[in-house]
Amino acid sequence: MTQMKHSDVFWFVPNLIGYFRVSLGAVVAFSMYYEYPYVTFICYLASGLLDGADGYYARKLGQCSMFGEVLDMVTDRCTAATLLIYLTQLYKSPLLALAACFLISLDISSHYMQMFAQLMVGKTNHKQMDENTHWALKLFYTDKRIFIPLCFGNEAFYLLLYMDKYLPTYALYISIPLTFVALPLCLIKNAINAVQLYVSACELACLDAAKFNKSKK
């Protein structure tokens, strides 16, 4: 039987989708700064839709990989951070800039610490939940009826804030109400990020305490 090489992992279908999402993220960045809002909208939306496709094909084809999971997570964080940073320039609001700094920091730190904590306890990915997991995280990561709307609503809020600056007046009668509808979903998603950060910190601290106690015996 032919042994798989590490380079073969790079050619997994879900990882190819991930590379395409990275390229879409680059297009999003350039189209924002050169003010092509509709290109930005389409590419950002396409990247979000493909975010679900890579996971689907990873499971369907038996091509789940740690590299693919990290690629997916990093792409999500970088794409959202790019949009949030540009929003601060677009609205020229110190309050929004402060909020963006907080949201970017919370998003990156909570996911990094969650992944690291899960790997340290022997789990294969940051979405793997057990019986002792905080109820909010368990509900979020195991129920797609919760997971998909919250993730979509969070990204939709940022994207709608962006488009509200460019849409013609008649379209704002639709986009602005949608922005307010997406706002609570964004707030809930970031509250879950805060819970994730706290729970992961506790898990790592528990591992540290156990290590120190063992060393003193």
Rank of each mutant, 00 (worst) to 15 (best):
D143C: 09
I42W: 10
M115N: 05
Y162L: 08
F67C: 01
L185Y: 10
V22C: 11
A205G: 03
V13W: 08
A99S: 11
S215C: 13
L119P: 03
P149Q: 12
K165N: 03
L61S: 09
P177L: 12
K189H: 13
L87P: 02
L137K: 10
L160S: 06
L167D: 01
P184V: 07
L183D: 00
A136Y: 01
A80T: 07
N15C: 10
Y198F: 05
M66C: 02
H134Y: 07
C43Y: 10
S23F: 15
L90K: 08
G62H: 01
S31F: 05
N190Q: 14
D164T: 09
F147C: 14
D107V: 06
C101G: 15
A182V: 00
A58I: 09
E35K: 03
F41S: 03
T124D: 13
L119Y: 12
P168D: 00
H111N: 14
C64Y: 01
L119H: 14
G68L: 06
G48K: 04
T88N: 02
M120K: 15
K211V: 09
L95D: 03
F147D: 11
T40K: 01
T2P: 05
Q196F: 06
P149R: 04
F20E: 09
I188C: 07
I174T: 15
I176F: 09
T75G: 04
R77W: 07
K211Y: 13
I148Q: 07
T79C: 03
V13C: 03
G62W: 04
C206T: 14
L185R: 06
H134N: 12
N125Y: 11
C186H: 10
P177A: 05
R21V: 07
T133A: 11
I104R: 09
M113V: 11
F10Q: 08
V9I: 15
D72I: 10
P37D: 00
K165A: 12
L84E: 08
M129G: 06
R145I: 14
Y158V: 09
L160R: 08
